[in-house]
Design a protein around this nucleic acid. Structure first.
Lengths: 119, 119
DNA sequence: CCAGTTCTCAACCGCTTGGTTGATAACGTA
DNA sequence: TACGTTATCAACCAAGCGGTTGAGAACTGG
């Protein structure tokens, strides 16, 4: 079993599974109901649901059998936090770069030692 | 080749590739620099970079050879938009459910026809 | 109890993946 | 020019994935 974040991203890397998640935002559903719109077998959808479950994206009613599949939207946060963290780091770097460029413009004759990355 | 969203999620489903992305938020780097911290071969990292590139997460300097790998943080938005969309739909559903429950409490004797989902 | 429905498990298949090694292309430099 | 460095390409391998079919478990209802 791999780390939670990898499982999450991997789970959503399949269009059918993303579609299932989308569908579950309309409300809980049984595996049969979930499988109905697709041409693939119920077993295939059952497997997909299992993947979503192991990723924590989905839970099931009390008795596993004939029970509803429920979306656990909170785990989305795990991903958004990861993404936002690095998006912000990337943006911060651009800002830093801008600042350095501005500085270079300001003191072209200053011949200060060039700063290395962040140091 | 699969759809862009699938490629994005799949690209980030690997811990090594997420690590590469994280590293690139510190600034551009050559394949060799990226590969240095890992025990795997340079070829393996080169493959990872290729996957990131095809997902649009990364671009390369002019000459493919010996040039820098650059993070394209904007494509993160594709994912966050997808996630946010369905997180909000899920939340909206909870709110709707709350409203229905409150309504049932208010008019226990009202015997209004139950609303079906959103209709 | 028996029958039908719903779902999962198991085995299998073709394709993709992450890794390897080896060869080779492209560049910088003594 | 010849050499070393850097990166990619190619072939291969084991493992995993998405799909199938077939069997069976678990619950529902006559």
């Amino acid at each position: 079993m791999s780390d939670p974040l990898s499982q999450l991203f991997a789970a959503l890397a399949d269009p059918t599974r993303r579609d299932l998640v989308a569908r579950l935002t309309d409300g809980d559903a049984t595996v049969g109901q979930l499988a109905a719109p697709y041409r693939v077998s119920v077993q295939a959808i059952s497997k997909h649901v299992k993947v979503l479950e192991q990723a924590g994206l989905v839970s099931r009613g009390a008795q596993g059998h004939r029970s509803s599949v429920h979306l656990e939207a909170e785990v989305f946060d795990l991903m958004t936090k990861w993404i936002e963290r690095y998006r912000q780091r990337a943006e911060a770097r651009y800002k830093r770069l801008d600042a350095v460029l501005a500085e270079m413009n300001d003191e072209e004759a200053g011949h200060r030692p060039a700063r290395e990355e962040t140091a």
